[in-house]
């Protein structure tokens, strides 16, 4: 049980998908201008990533591995994730048009979001079982959402800062992300207790 807990905690804090693994930066930079969009993107990613981890585990364990098709892993994962993202987009568009507008062009970005592909691939590398895979996916997504939300709140305040002209906008956001990354390095070594 504690093993599961540490899988999630490790994914959220210690190996935060954005700040430590440096994955999924496009949506991280793109959708973090406003707190509410960040919340929406976090929710969407959490859903997609958990689904992606589950389905890719199924495909990997019961389709690819028995048939010795590990070399198709990346390809088939991409196809699966792309389909799931499309599904999510269609559903969101219907269920919550506002969220769809807000996420706008970023939902398709999840398709090519390295976090969404990277986490299932890491699952395989780390040899997680099904539950662990799901938890790891969920934890990573929660870490991603956490990063996004904290960063969005910071950016909302930063918008009022008297930043030198050349650093305004994305530039200072990148600097900020780097410094947050530095802060997250403090968690290094925490996961050795699991």
């Amino acid at each position: 049980m504690t093993g599961y807990f540490f899988v999630v905690l490790g994914a959220v804090l210690v190996n935060n998908v954005v700040f430590v693994r440096i994955l999924g930066l496009c949506p991280f930079m793109g959708v973090s201008k406003k707190l509410e969009t960040a919340l929406g993107m976090g929710a969407a990613t959490t859903f997609v990533l958990t689904m992606a981890c589950g389905s890719s585990f199924v495909i990997d364990r019961w389709l690819l591995q028995p048939n010795g098709l590990e070399y198709l892993r990346t390809l088939s994962f991409i196809v699966t994730i792309a389909a799931i993202v499309q599904l999510t987009e269609l559903v969101i568009q219907k269920v919550s048009p506002l969220l769809h507008q807000v996420l706008g062009i970023y939902l398709p970005l999840i398709t090519t979001n390295c976090a969404v592909l990277g986490v299932p691939l890491l699952n395989v590398t780390l040899k997680y079982n099904f539950v662990e895979s799901l938890l790891f996916g969920f934890g990573s997504a929660v870490g991603f959402s956490l990063a996004l939300i904290l960063f969005a709140a910071m950016r909302e305040r930063l918008e009022g800062a008297d930043v030198p002209v050349h650093f305004r906008g994305t530039a200072i956001a990148m600097v900020t992300a780097g410094l947050i990354s530095l802060a997250f390095m403090g968690f290094t070594g925490l996961d050795k207790y699991k």
């Binding site: 909302e156 305040r157 918008e159 009022g160 800062a161 008297d162």
Partner: peptide, 11 residues
């Protein structure tokens, strides 16, 4: 003050 100074009236 922070937001009025930066003319972020909504905030």
């Amino acid at each position: 003050y922070w937001f009025a100074r930066a003319k972020l009236f909504g905030k």
